[in-house]
Amino acid sequence: MMPFDELDERIRNAIAQEVEAGLPCLAGMEARVMAELAARPDRRPFWARLARARWRWALAGCGVAVLAIGFAIGRLSAPGPSPLLAHGGSLFAVAVPGARAVAVVGDFSAWQPVPLADPDGDGIWTATIALPPGRYEYAFVVDGRWIGQDPLADEYVRSFGEYASVRYIGGGS
């Protein structure tokens, strides 16, 4: 087995090369991501509108109905995909101009690829994923290449010889 220090050295070199190669893509990334976010429509949650109308019983009824439906979906063995991509979720974004296929893999998808989209062709690929509070490991896969260091991550963790990003969802994050 490869010694840990030699493996670390190789990983450091690989990361250095990856960062160097990605520097042009990172230029102005924050501004572009913020602009993209700002352009999104302001969607106030349905519950907020209901609460404002003082429709408390309707709110309670809807809450029970939504939870019951969610519970049923989770428990029943009905086939078919149910990717819960939704507005107001956690944004996963990566700047990779010229990429052909970009996906995020992580704990939340059992490490199956969830595709990202770049509809305006500016090289910023995004997906918004609704996730409950918790800790999530993830990485981007760009044209088959693993990118485990997301600049927007809270921290990084190394396991199984590769880095992954970590994001904490909830707690005001």
């Binding site: 309670a60 809450g63 029970v64 939870l67 019951a68 969610g70 519970f71 979906i73 989770g74 029943l76 063995s77 009905a78 086939p79 078919g80 995909p81 149910s82 990717p83 819960l84 991509l85 939340f108 998808s109 059992a110 199956q112 969830v114 994923i129 996730l131 409950p132 918790g134």
Partner: peptide, 21 residues
């Protein structure tokens, strides 16, 4: 009912994969 349904929902692993039996 709300608290019960919420608790049961939280017990499940938060996944966005397909439902299978």
């Amino acid at each position: 009912l709300v608290v019960g349904a919420w608790a049961v929902a939280q017990a499940q692993v938060p996944l966005i994969v397909e439902q299978v039996s």
